[in-house]
Design a protein around this nucleic acid. Sequence first.
DNA 1: TTGTTAATTTTAATTAAATTAGGAAATAAG
DNA 2: CTTATTTCCTAATTTAATTAAAATTAACAA
Lengths: 164, 164
Amino acid sequence: MGIVKQEKVMMEKLDDIDRAILRILQKDAKTVAKSIAEQLGLTKTPVYERIKRLEQEGFIKNYVAILNKDKIEESITVFSFVSLEAQKGAMMDDFFEQVMKYPEVVECFVVGGEFDFLLKVVVKNLDAYYNFAKFKIASLPSIGGVKSAFVLNEVKNDTHFPLL
Amino acid sequence: MGIVKQEKVMMEKLDDIDRAILRILQKDAKTVAKSIAEQLGLTKTPVYERIKRLEQEGFIKNYVAILNKDKIEESITVFSFVSLEAQKGAMMDDFFEQVMKYPEVVECFVVGGEFDFLLKVVVKNLDAYYNFAKFKIASLPSIGGVKSAFVLNEVKNDTHFPLL
DNA sequence: TTGTTAATTTTAATTAAATTAGGAAATAAG
DNA sequence: CTTATTTCCTAATTTAATTAAAATTAACAA
């Protein structure tokens, strides 16, 4: 039995500079390295290398454009609260697989409480939502029920994680 | 009474190329103009100018980095369902103003149904959530009640608007 | 059809940012 | 204190963004 060589695992910890960079990029991913560097009192190279590290190590998942729904086309947002009759693991996996494929399901969470899943659904109008709920959700096996909350107004809709 | 000069309002309509560009940038805002151009069979200048137009006219709100919550620090996500005792307009505005300031409230929607507001809250742990719900929500005037659904698992969490 | 205008795209040139390389300063470890 | 390690800086290079000018296409009226 040989000596177990301790691999260098690299703790992948964040320091204050990393967190500051993440805070900036969460607000505006187009901020150029030079500008971030100036805000932090550094030059762009360390900033650049930290960003690359943060991407490499998975602290930054990806960069996306946030669109203005209202200007693009008619749509409504609905939260669907789904209850299962019996939570069999296999059933849930089927449900997830379907949900992943439905483009109108923008978010899906397993939750604890009065119901089992919470979906955020974006569709063209009420009619489209009715069809979605009836044929794409309620019709799935082992679904107990679906309640809906229609979004009347968006007060706040951030994408960022609240870094202290 | 003078003749009413019809201002050129610029219909700000999206064609298929615009939509294709938006679809790409929603998925990956770092896609370079050249690559988008190749996918669409164009050169980079028209792509560049369309993107600038889409930004200018507000179809693109902003660009953000999406972080990996789990790697950064301990946190839980909770949906809070808030009911008002009486929906007075002024009360609601106060509520919104507070909510806008709370960094732990990541999303806030006015909804129709069994309750009045739906919040997505990100906090460090259950204890922090208890304090948030008790002191920052339930204590506000005219709040009827707060129910909570704790996120056990994220199945899907997209930021994009489902463009047909 | 044909000429005119406006809009869009292309090519080419310029500017700015990202990326890489090598060495200096600060920090931590022995 | 000395060495090793990490982090940072300066400067050079590559790549992408941005601008400019000419060419093409589309729309439309004569």
